[in-house]
């Protein structure tokens, strides 16, 4: 039994239509992650202290906040795409596969939002002229 409609069969696209989208996004995020990861590595190497005050001050710098948010967004997107392929390769039972994919996607978005929100409140809370 095929779930493909006769029209879909005739047009030859299946239901996906964009077969290269996933592959391309994986590469695009990979390319972006090369400089972002190198920046983060050098940033960690440049930190004199990992105590709370030092880290908060570091994240509060606008350039650091923006680059950190970019790093998180792109990494989480890349991670989601990668884990999706892993799940699709190894989880074959449909009842387990779809909920796993959904859970992973939700988790990635949730972690991303929580991190970005954290960076924003750190930045705003410590920005000059704003009462703590």
């Amino acid at each position: 039994m095929s779930l493909q409609s006769p029209l879909g069969k005739f047009l030859g696209h299946g239901s996906a239509k964009e077969g290269t989208e996933h592959w391309w996004s994986q590469r695009l995020t990979a390319v972006a992650l090369v400089p972002l990861t190198l920046w983060f590595v050098f940033a960690l190497l440049g930190m004199d202290s990992f105590e709370h005050a030092a880290v908060v001050a570091w994240i509060s710098q606008p350039l650091h906040a923006v680059l950190l948010i970019l790093l998180l967004m792109v990494t989480l997107h890349h991670s989601q795409l990668g884990l999706q392929v892993v799940v699709e390769d190894y989880v074959h039972s449909g009842w387990l596969k779809v909920p796993t994919l959904m859970t992973f996607k939700f988790l990635h978005v949730a972690v991303g939002v929580a991190c970005i929100y954290s960076i924003i409140i750190i930045s705003v809370g410590n920005a000059p002229g704003i009462a703590q």
Binding site: H52, V55, V56, I59, L68, L72, T75, L76, S79, G82, L83, V86, V111, A114, C115, Y117, S118, I119, I121, I122
Partner: peptide, 25 residues
Amino acid sequence: RAAGVFLSLGMLVLAAWIISAAMGQ
């Protein structure tokens, strides 16, 4: 692939670091 999956888990460490910094000392 193994490193990629491990790094996905590692994102939770990075997230814990950033989120806890926002939560306070």
